[in-house]
Lab assay of single mutants.
Amino acid sequence: KLLSSIEQACDICRLKKLKCSKEKPKCAKCLKNNWECRYSPKTKRSPLTRAHLTEVESRLERLE
């Protein structure tokens, strides 16, 4: 599967780190437990900047 097509777990399953069936409108866990089942939009991760990478590398060197 391509990364862009990976389905996201519902908010509660993601928060509780449960295996989500990803069914809509309610996944199996939410249906069974009568929880409100919501699927928040995916958040875009910002790409690493060179400055951040350099900072992490220098912190790693100090720890070694």
Rank of each mutant, 00 (worst) to 15 (best):
S4P: 11
C27A: 02
K32E: 08
E7P: 10
C20L: 08
Q8T: 09
K16N: 07
E61Y: 12
L63F: 12
C20K: 05
K19H: 06
K32M: 10
R45M: 00
C37M: 04
K16C: 07
C20E: 06
L2T: 11
K22D: 04
T49V: 07
K42T: 08
P47M: 04
A9K: 02
P47V: 06
R14E: 01
L63Y: 08
P41T: 05
L3Y: 13
C10K: 06
D11C: 02
L31G: 14
R62W: 05
S4V: 11
S40Y: 07
P47S: 03
H52P: 01
S4W: 09
E61T: 13
V56W: 04
C20W: 02
C37T: 02
D11H: 06
H52V: 00
C20F: 07
S40P: 01
L63Q: 03
E64W: 06
L2A: 11
C10G: 00
L18R: 03
E61G: 14
S40G: 08
K24F: 15
E36K: 10
N34D: 12
R59D: 01
C37S: 04
K17G: 00
Q8W: 10
D11P: 02
K42D: 05
S21V: 02
L3F: 14
E61C: 14
A51P: 01
R45A: 03
A51F: 11
R62I: 13
T49D: 00
I6C: 13
E23Q: 14
P25G: 10
S40F: 05
E61D: 13
Q8K: 08
S46M: 05
Y39R: 05
E64Y: 12
K24S: 15
K29P: 04
N33D: 08
L31K: 15
S46C: 01
E61Q: 13
S5D: 15
C30Y: 06
E55N: 12
S40M: 04
K19D: 03
S21Q: 02
E55L: 10
E64R: 08
N34T: 14
V56P: 02
K24W: 15
S58F: 14
R38W: 11
S46L: 00
I6Y: 12
S58Y: 14
A51I: 09
P25T: 07
L31P: 05
N34H: 11
E23N: 14
K26L: 15
L53Q: 02
R38V: 11
K16M: 02
K22G: 03
S4L: 13
E61R: 12
K42R: 13
L18P: 08
C37I: 03
T49F: 04
C20V: 00
S58E: 15
S21G: 06
E55G: 09
K44H: 09
A28S: 08
A51Q: 12
I12K: 10
E64D: 09
Q8I: 08
R45S: 01
E57P: 08
H52D: 04
H52G: 00
R45G: 00
L3M: 12
K1L: 12
L18W: 10
E55A: 13
L18K: 04
S40I: 05
R50H: 00
S5H: 12
R59T: 04
C27W: 01
R59E: 01
S40W: 05
R14A: 07
E36R: 12
C27T: 01
L60Q: 03
S4D: 13
R14K: 09
K17Y: 06
L53V: 12
E23C: 12
K22R: 10
L63W: 01
L48I: 07
V56H: 07
L31F: 15
K1A: 13
R50P: 03
N33V: 04
C13A: 00
K24H: 13
S58V: 13
Q8P: 09
H52S: 07
H52E: 08
C37F: 06
L48C: 03
C30K: 00
L63I: 14
L60M: 13
E55S: 14
K29L: 08
L18Q: 10
D11Q: 10
V56M: 07
L53A: 03
L18S: 11
L2V: 15
C27S: 08
E57V: 06
K29S: 06
K44M: 11
L48S: 03
Y39P: 00
Q8H: 11
N34G: 12
L53F: 03
K32V: 09
L53Y: 04
L3E: 15
A9N: 03
A51E: 04
K1R: 11
L15D: 10
E57K: 01
R38L: 15
L60G: 05
W35P: 06
K44A: 12
L31M: 14
R45T: 05
E57N: 01
P41K: 06
T49S: 04
K29G: 04
E7G: 10
I12F: 15
N33E: 09
A51M: 10
E61F: 13
C20Q: 04
L31S: 13
Y39K: 00
S46Q: 02
R50G: 02
D11R: 02
R45L: 03
E64C: 09
K19T: 07
L18E: 00
K26Y: 12
P25Q: 08
K1T: 15
A28P: 02
Y39F: 09
P25A: 02
K29C: 08
K1Y: 11
K17V: 04
K32F: 08
I12Q: 11
S5F: 09
K26W: 12
C13L: 06
L15C: 12
K32I: 09
K22F: 05
L53K: 02
E55F: 12
R45C: 01
